[in-house]
């Protein structure tokens, strides 16, 4: 695991463009489609957008607003009859180098400048109270934040086998533990449950990988009293020093808060996701 405790994190940035495409197909004509999209990158100290756009086919009326967690939500309404809805989100972005270094601190009595209630409490797919014993066992003698997060992240990475098709988008954290397998989303849910059981504020992040086109990815962010939200990835075994690996899309308590497309449609038919493709093009900056 690439944990640079207390030392400088890699001072590299990134400039480029992103593209996120998704297509839904329906068994019969849809008269109206009303959806909440979380497909526009989430801006923070590390991530900046230089223009963004979302195109849908058929075209849609929309509003944009920030949800409780600062994600940009685009609410669309399609009123043209359709059997297929395609959504393309694209734009330009820059990643700033991480500030660092981030000294390790005791987990006990951490004080934060923001409200962390949601990131310590049970959420739809994560019930920390079912994971307390295991969390304490993994943490062992560690009393410090970064060290503890590192142990949990490493444990989930090593003990949950990466395997597609064994879970759904609604598999809960404790079920992932029981199954012993899953995808990035499942590993994140389990890690969140273990961290929250130890009273470490942590949240779910969905992202596009800058180095690998295809599906979206998920990782954990934990809150550091001085450094803010820092990455921990139980799939890729990354701790803090993520460099320019991720373009963050949305953050939340768990997957249910960051789902890229959620909504309702008016039709006698049923709908199904038929394609997702995410891609970044660009270069590192130094």
């Amino acid at each position: 695991m690439q944990a640079n405790l207390g030392s400088q994190v890699s001072q590299v940035g990134f400039v480029g463009e992103y593209r996120y495409e998704t297509v839904y197909q329906y068994t019969d004509f849809v008269l109206q489609n009303d959806d909440f999209l979380r497909v526009i990158p989430h801006q923070d100290d590390h991530t900046m957008l230089d223009g963004h756009d979302v195109e849908t086919s058929p075209p849609s009326a929309y509003v944009e607003f920030n949800d409780n967690y600062g994600n940009v939500v685009r609410r669309i309404k399609v009123t043209t009859r359709h059997k297929e809805l395609s959504i393309v989100s694209k734009g330009n972005f820059r990643l700033r180098p991480w500030r660092g270094p981030y000294p390790d601190v005791p987990v006990q009595n951490m004080k934060f400048n923001e409200d962390v209630t949601d990131f310590l409490s049970p959420s739809p797919l994560v019930k920390p109270y079912l994971l307390g014993d295991l969390a304490r066992k993994i943490a062992g003698d560690s009393t410090r934040l970064v060290e503890t997060v590192g142990r949990i992240t490493q444990w989930v990475h090593d003990n949950i086998k990466y395997e597609r098709g064994t879970t759904t988008v609604l598999t809960e954290a404790h079920q992932v533990l029981a199954n012993g397998r899953g995808v990035c989303q499942d590993k994140v849910h389990l890690a969140l449950g273990l961290l929250r059981a130890l009273w470490i504020p942590s949240r779910y992040v969905s992202c596009i990988l800058t180095e690998q086109a295809g599906d979206t990815h998920a990782y954990v962010e934990f809150l550091h009293p001085e450094g803010g939200w820092l990455p921990a990835d139980p799939t890729k075994a990354i701790l803090i020093d993520a460099g320019t690996t991720y373009l963050k899309l949305a953050v939340g308590r768990d997957y249910t808060d960051v789902s890229p497309v959620s909504g309702t449609f008016l039709s006698t038919g049923t709908g199904q996701l038929s394609r997702v493709f995410a891609q970044v093009r660009g270069t590192n900056t130094y």
Binding site: F36, S60, A61, N66, D67, V73, R75
Partner: peptide, 16 residues
């Protein structure tokens, strides 16, 4: 607040 009014089921973006 925007996240209240725009998350309302009965808000119609196409009537703006």
């Amino acid at each position: 607040p925007e996240n209240v009014v725009y998350s309302c089921v009965n808000f119609n973006p196409d009537l703006q």
